[in-house]
Simulated assay, not measured.
Amino acid sequence: MTIDASLDAPWTDLWYASADGLKLHARDYGPRDAAAPPVVCLPGLARSAGDFHELASALATADGGPRRVLALDYRGRGRSDYDPNPRNYDLPVESADILALLAAAGLAGAVFVGTSRGGMHVMLLAATHKDVLAGAVLNDIGPVIEMTGLMRIKGYVGQMPTPKTYEEAAALLQGIAGPGFPAFGAADWARLAARSFIERGGALVADHDPALTASLEALAPDKPLPPLWPFFDALKDVPLMLIRGEHSDILSAQTLAAMAERRPDADVLTVAGQGHAPVLWEAEVVGRVVGFVEGIAAEVPRGPEGTIAGVEG
């Protein structure tokens, strides 16, 4: 499927309250009365709704029919309130916030696209509220999470330097993530910087609560996380797409292969030249995800569709 990479659909701000009274934010794309199943996009640990702008724009205006797309800011990220209790930056609390978003938007369910931590939420929802899942896209996450990548993330979340300009911010991000993204050019790093930093108090700061480090304190190289296979297996019978970055240090090629063996019906895609986590703004990748989502709506068979530019299927 060919997607116009210049798509720039408008969105409205959807504000809603968490159970403990925080003001939370999501971007709301597309018509609210669209017939096509809606999509909910869940970002990575320290990321925000803006990461999904190109994908949301394409889904909201796709040839197969416009659809509503919600991309949320977790508590402590983007435009959502920071939590005075950093211990609430954990999966169960955030999962409740996701369900609160569905209620606020008047949705019984959706196709969920989860990047990294967002994919962990998708697996958790499969185990606890499977009825809300019309389909699932797991972007560079699986039931076995590599400690190498987790320790790398622990080394910078909540501890980012304060660049003076967005050019410095782009160079900073390239220094942190460059080895995993050899396909990135200057424009890519600039786009990532624009979505990673905000101006606050006359300075550029990372667009998340520095106290987010509390969610990573227990991580240690000699304490691997327990495998989450039961949560992955809870996705049985849910239309599934699996995405991995070629150079990912969070989702190994071996784990992806094991996931695909358990779910031979899944649409499996490896993004060349990228690590953790693949950005979802390239036209070829966006087109592949849109095609998968439209396949759910049309109830057509899913599965690998061969190779497209920059993507190994």
Rank of each mutant, 00 (worst) to 15 (best):
Phe52Glu: 10
Ala60Lys: 10
Ala34Phe: 06
Ala46Met: 09
Ala34Arg: 11
Ala62Arg: 15
Gly44Phe: 04
Leu42Gln: 05
Asp33Ile: 03
Leu24Val: 08
Cys41Met: 10
Ala34Asn: 05
Pro43His: 03
Gly44Asn: 03
Ala17Ile: 02
Gly50Phe: 01
Leu24Met: 01
Leu24Ile: 09
Arg27Ile: 00
Gly30Lys: 04
Ser48Leu: 12
Arg27His: 09
Leu45Pro: 00
Arg27Ala: 15
Ala62Val: 10
Lys23Glu: 15
Gly21Arg: 08
Ala46Gly: 14
Ala49Trp: 06
Phe52Ala: 04
Asp28Phe: 08
Ala35His: 14
Leu22Thr: 03
Phe52Gln: 09
Gly21Cys: 05
Ala17Glu: 14
Ala49Asp: 05
Ser48Val: 14
Ala49Thr: 04
Val40Lys: 05
Leu59Arg: 09
Ser48Phe: 11
Gly44Glu: 05
Leu55Cys: 05
Tyr29Pro: 02
Ser48Tyr: 07
Ala60Met: 11
Pro37Ala: 14
Arg32Pro: 03
Leu42Met: 10
Thr61Val: 10
Leu42Trp: 05
Leu24Cys: 07
Leu59Ala: 05
Gly44Tyr: 11
Leu59His: 09
Ser48Met: 13
Leu42Asn: 10
His25Pro: 08
Asp20Ile: 05
Lys23Phe: 01
Ala49Glu: 08
Tyr29Cys: 10
Leu42Pro: 03
Val39Ala: 11
Glu54Met: 13
Leu24Tyr: 02
Ala17Tyr: 03
His53Arg: 11
Ala35Gln: 14
Ala58Asp: 05
Pro31Gln: 08
Tyr29Ala: 08
Ala56Ser: 15
Arg47Gly: 00
Leu22Phe: 01
Asp28Tyr: 02
Arg47Ile: 00
Val39Met: 08
Phe52Val: 07
Asp28Pro: 04
Leu55Ile: 07
Pro37Val: 12
Gly50Cys: 07
Asp20Leu: 02
Leu55Pro: 06
Ala46Pro: 08
Ala26Trp: 09
Asp28Ser: 12
His53Trp: 02
Gly44Ile: 06
Leu24Ala: 04
Ala60Asp: 03
Cys41Ser: 06
Ala36Ser: 14
Ala60Gly: 02
Asp28Trp: 06
Arg32Asp: 14
Arg32Ala: 15
Glu54Tyr: 12
Gly50Ser: 13
Ser48Asn: 15
Cys41His: 06
Tyr29His: 12
Glu54Gly: 12
Ala17Lys: 14
Leu45His: 05
Ala58Arg: 09
Asp28Thr: 02
Leu45Ala: 04
Phe52Asp: 03
His53Tyr: 09
Val39Gly: 06
Ala49Arg: 10
Ala17Leu: 10
Thr61Phe: 11
Ala17Met: 13
Leu22Ser: 01
Phe52Trp: 08
